[in-house]
Design a protein around this nucleic acid. Structure first.
Lengths: 234, 234
DNA sequence: TCTAGTCATTGATTATTATCAATCGTCAGC
DNA sequence: GCTGACGATTGATAATAATCAATGACTAGA
């Protein structure tokens, strides 16, 4: 029951050029002639919370730009559990591995209502062949993905759980595009940090009792100074 | 006291074309005309064990192809400790972030005597501008780096230490290019898996007592079946 | 309104890992 | 051969997190 819906099928040379977040996305540097090269439609798709944008079993035919919302990349493990390898937000690109002809490496699941642009791989390849203006942005997207992965690895899997949760909250707060910081479910925090759901819950609850975060459902405002102290010392 | 030495300065159109591992590396698809585009020399450099290929503080002017040997990417943390985010081997590319104009993200340190090709970023940019044959390999290198990072994250930071060490040994054994599997120092195993040196030592010693690995200095032969059982169950 | 379901929280106990400390083995240099 | 340095190993103990289990809070739907 995929309740996603295609809002508009953009044929290249019309709306992409006037997209209001274009300066943030893959097509930032393209011009009118470049957009004229696009043949297949670029669909603007809306997803509810908790839906799959793609799964590892899907044919890797599209790359997705996040227009708004929040997406987790879920890697399923052999023993049935899962790890979240990254969280993507506005301007990030999901499913770039499709450009290399390989299957999607993870499932992409929305954490909030999310809008994406679905770009056919064939069009990116065409643009990259026929225009010099895409490759810089492509390079910078690959780069960001690796840099995020490495930061995640070195900052969010190191030290005691309390430190990791503090770092995660600081990361989410750094990268928020709304007033409040998104707080994942306790199970997702566990999957992000390689700790159990119970440990995640205990730590979030403790931070709340200490007044360092005030949680309202999936949103919170956080006391950065207090959490930074935890993130460093412990 | 950097004892690295430049073996040969290859001006593009001579030796690259006949490099005996070219099919494995970034320049796999290039032809004679492409090599003619290269102006600056591509140096073939040798490093002893434990040397820095580059540091985060170096100007990001080069990308490095590993011809042989083993390299760790070391991310230093604020509290003075460090994490190893990846291990690179023959055919891998180090320092690709230089292509994006950003500083190197980690220090690259050799674990064994290592030979690398040092390729000026400017030459890669020129080739990518003037030939269509580099971009596919570039895409595939970015892709491999991300895929490695994500695998690392999801497999090597999950579960109890014993499971993580078993997975690491299996990974190193999968990726060996010699008869024996490279075993990192106990401190490096700790930095790879986010465990302490002592825990790493205890587990390696236990695996040895069980007859699952027979270690001789930095090399070992391993009992894959036994370790796979540990990697799955625990 | 009541109920079942889901997620968060908390407690009690056990298992795992970190920490602190000592010892052992190997090797380069005197 | 002796010595110091360094890495690996091991032991004892404390800290941390997992596990098992129960309860609380909230929500959607009967």
């Amino acid at each position: 029951m995929n309740r996603s819906s295609v809002l508009e099928a953009w044929t290249g040379n019309t709306k992409c050029l006037h997209c209001n977040i274009r300066k943030l996305v893959l097509f930032a540097d393209l011009n009118q002639q470049d957009f004229d090269l696009i043949h297949q439609p670029i669909d603007d798709i809306s997803f509810d919370c908790g839906e799959n944008i793609y799964k590892t079993t899907d044919s890797p035919l599209f790359v997705y730009t996040i227009r708004s919302g929040l997406v987790k990349l879920v890697h399923e493990l052999a023993n049935g559990s899962y790890r979240i390898v990254r969280i993507l937000r506005q301007g990030d690109v999901a499913g770039m591995e499709a450009l290399n002809g390989t299957d999607y490496l993870q499932n992409a699941v929305t954490l909030q209502p999310t809008y994406v642009c679905r770009i056919p791989v064939a069009e990116i390849e065409r643009l990259n062949r026929e225009s010099p203006r895409l490759s810089k942005q492509l390079t910078s997207r690959w780069q960001k993905a690796i840099s995020d992965a490495d930061t995640w690895l070195s900052e969010l899997t190191t030290g005691v759980s309390k430190r990791r949760v503090a770092n995660l909250l600081l990361y989410l707060d750094d990268n928020k595009d709304t007033k409040y910081c998104y707080i994942p479910s306790r199970e997702d925090i566990g999957a992000l940090l390689a700790i159990t759901t119970e440990t995640a819950s205990r730590i979030i609850a403790e931070f709340g009792r200490n007044g360092w975060i005030s949680v309202d459902g999936s949103n919170a405002s956080i006391d950065r100074a207090a959490l930074e102290k935890i993130a460093l010392i412990d």
